[in-house]
């Protein structure tokens, strides 16, 4: 669906991505008292990146819990709680800490429903921040969503707009499956129109056409959605760029992407994860499977060049994918 059509006829409010996520969390805490937020300093402190804010004051310790600094323990507890009647939303302060909890994610959360022949629900949400750009260095800047998208039994979403940030957070919490919401921390201050309807959700598995165009399709995620839109504006008149926010990484809305590619014949995939063996490759594989004969040029990848995120600004800027990279990729194939 196009972003405009999605918002048409809806009452909206302008807010930041951070506020949009918090509003989504607040509405779900209110709607269902079995929704439990937990994580490190998500309560009284309001979250290190200030996403949970005052939810602790609003909902109290029963629904918004500060955990010990023990990711395996509380992610595991979220799995156990999800299997026994509550709806936990656990926050990983930085997605780089996911490794600490990976056992519970890959062997319990992802596999329980399947191993048990479908006899358990697993309504757990994991929120994790990703991304470079603030000089946080290699252990606090990673983009790891490919791991989760790759691993069977997990759903992964990664919003690029404020509306999707709210809509996907709510969809994740309402889902009976494990859903990871990857929040790029550089767009927490990015503003957008957000529907105020308490039942507004962004369905998991749907991409959003953020800008229509004729010459080239940019499939972008997270921060690169906004940067690609700026590039598209800059090129308008010369090149007509269609920008799609993939929104959901697994399941992926192959149809919307392929439909666009059939129209434009050219495609750039822009995602902050490391380029090799990843999210870009999967999107491109599906594109060529479905629309090989529509392709007029090789599909381009824009991502992190297989390095970690370095600390010093010139180094970080060197490897961090951005609008310039998207523009170069477009110019190479148009």
């Amino acid at each position: 669906m196009t972003a405009q059509a999605e918002l048409d006829g809806q009452e909206t409010e302008t807010m930041t991505v951070r506020e949009a996520i918090r509003q989504g969390l607040r509405e779900e805490l209110e709607r269902d008292e079995d929704v439990l937020i937990m994580g490190e300093d998500v309560g009284a402190f309001g979250g290190v990146l200030e996403v949970t804010g005052n939810l602790y004051e609003e909902f109290g310790e029963e629904q918004v819990r500060d955990t010990p600094i023990a990711e395996a323990g509380y992610v595991g507890a979220a799995v156990g709680a999800a299997a026994t009647g509550t709806r936990p939303v656990a926050e990983l302060m930085f997605s780089d800490f996911m490794g600490v909890s990976m056992e519970q994610i890959m062997n319990q959360m992802a596999k329980m429903r399947y191993m048990f022949g479908g006899k358990t629900e697993m309504p757990v949400t994991i929120r994790a921040t990703e991304g470079g750009g603030m000089g946080a260095a290699s252990q606090h800047s990673g983009t790891v969503h490919t791991w989760i998208s790759h691993f069977p039994g997990l759903k992964a979403v990664a919003p690029g707009t404020a509306a999707a940030a709210k809509g996907l957070t709510k969809a994740a919490i309402r889902s009976d499956d494990p859903v990871f919401v990857f929040e790029n921390k550089m767009i927490y201050e990015q503003k957008g129109e957000v529907p105020t309807d308490e039942d507004y959700i962004t369905p998991i598995g749907e991409a959003s056409v953020e800008r229509e165009g004729e010459d080239v399709t940019v499939v972008a995620t997270q921060r690169l959605v906004g940067e690609s839109l700026t590039v598209a504006d800059g090129l308008s008149g010369d090149v007509s760029v269609e920008v799609i926010d993939a929104q959901s990484l697994y399941p992926l809305d192959t149809e919307t992407i392929v439909e666009s590619l059939r129209k434009t014949g050219r495609m750039v995939v822009a995602d902050e994860s490391p380029v090799s063996y990843g999210t870009h490759a999967e999107i491109i594989a599906r594109a060529q499977e479905e629309a090989f004969f529509s392709l007029d040029a090789p599909i381009q990848r824009v991502g992190t060049p297989d390095t970690h995120m370095p600390f010093s600004t010139p180094l970080e800027q060197e490897v961090l994918p951005d609008g310039e990279g998207v523009q170069n990729a477009i110019e190479k194939i148009v």
Binding site: L36, G76, A77, A81, T84, T86, Q104, Q108
Partner: peptide, 23 residues
């Protein structure tokens, strides 16, 4: 709540079940 092929994985699950119970 399941037998478990991962040594040591059960206790966090029990803690989580106890959290549901308590909540």
């Amino acid at each position: 709540l399941g037998a478990n092929g991962i040594v040591g994985a059960g206790p966090p699950l029990a803690t989580g079940a106890a959290l549901s119970i308590s909540h």
